[in-house]
């Protein structure tokens, strides 16, 4: 529901990830992080929820 609300507010769905990884699943952790960084890299820098201190 949290992801859905963020998406509803206009945050790209590909920036929101939920995963359940046990401390014994090192390879899964690596895979998930890789997948997330690939997706986010494809989207480019996030401009939302970023605070601009110059304003």
């Amino acid at each position: 529901m949290m992801g859905n609300l963020l998406e509803h507010m206009g945050v790209d769905r590909d920036r929101i990830h939920f995963s359940w990884i046990s401390s014994a699943e090192a390879t899964k952790f690596v895979d998930v992080v890789k997948e997330i960084s690939d997706k986010v890299r494809a989207l480019g820098p996030n401009k939302k929820f970023v605070k601009d201190y110059n304003k």
Binding site: E7, H8, M9, G10, V11, D12, K48
Partner: peptide
């Protein structure tokens, strides 16, 4: 929900 993400962001 029918709007695109940028429009939704702008709306809120």
């Amino acid at each position: 929900a029918a709007m695109d993400p940028e429009a939704r962001w702008a709306y809120f």
